[in-house]
Simulated scan of single mutants.
Amino acid sequence: MARMRRKGDLPTKDCAQCGLPFAWRKKWEKVWDDVRYCSDRCRGEAKRQAKGGKKT
Score class of each variant (00 low, 15 high):
Met1Thr: 11
Met1His: 08
Met1Ser: 14
Met1Gly: 10
Ala2Thr: 06
Ala2Pro: 15
Ala2Lys: 15
Ala2Asn: 11
Met4His: 05
Lys7His: 15
Lys7Asp: 10
Lys7Val: 05
Gly8Ile: 12
Asp9Asn: 11
Asp9Thr: 15
Asp9Tyr: 07
Asp9Leu: 08
Leu10Cys: 13
Leu10Trp: 09
Leu10Asp: 03
Thr12Val: 11
Thr12Tyr: 14
Lys13Gly: 04
Lys13Arg: 15
Asp14Asn: 15
Asp14Tyr: 12
Cys15Ala: 11
Cys15Phe: 03
Cys15Thr: 10
Ala16His: 07
Ala16Glu: 14
Gln17Tyr: 13
Gln17Pro: 00
Cys18Thr: 01
Gly19Gln: 04
Gly19Glu: 05
Leu20Pro: 00
Pro21Phe: 13
Phe22Cys: 02
Ala23Tyr: 07
Trp24Tyr: 14
Trp24Asn: 00
Trp24Asp: 01
Arg25Asn: 03
Arg25Pro: 00
Lys26Gly: 01
Lys26Glu: 10
Lys26Trp: 02
Lys27Ile: 01
Trp28Arg: 06
Trp28Cys: 03
Glu29Tyr: 06
Glu29Lys: 14
Glu29Asp: 13
Glu29Trp: 07
Glu29Val: 03
Lys30Thr: 04
Lys30Asn: 09
Val31Glu: 07
Val31Thr: 08
Trp32Lys: 10
Asp33Glu: 14
Asp34Val: 00
Asp34Leu: 07
Val35Tyr: 01
Val35Phe: 09
Arg36Ile: 02
Tyr37His: 14
Cys38Arg: 02
Asp40Thr: 11
Asp40Val: 04
Asp40Phe: 07
Asp40Glu: 09
Arg41Leu: 07
Arg41Pro: 01
Arg41Ile: 10
Arg41Trp: 10
Cys42Val: 05
Cys42Asn: 05
Cys42Trp: 03
Arg43Val: 01
Arg43Pro: 02
Arg43Glu: 04
Arg43Ile: 04
Arg43Ser: 14
Arg43Lys: 13
Gly44Thr: 05
Gly44Lys: 11
Gly44Tyr: 10
Glu45Val: 10
Ala46Leu: 02
Lys47Gly: 02
Lys47Asp: 12
Lys47Gln: 13
Gln49Pro: 00
Gln49Glu: 14
Ala50Asp: 12
Ala50Ser: 13
Ala50Tyr: 05
Lys51Gln: 15
Gly52Glu: 13
Gly52Ala: 09
Gly53Arg: 09
Gly53Lys: 08
Gly53Pro: 08
Gly53Thr: 06
Lys54Thr: 06
Lys54Ser: 11
Lys54Arg: 13
Lys54Val: 09
Lys55Tyr: 03
Thr56Lys: 11
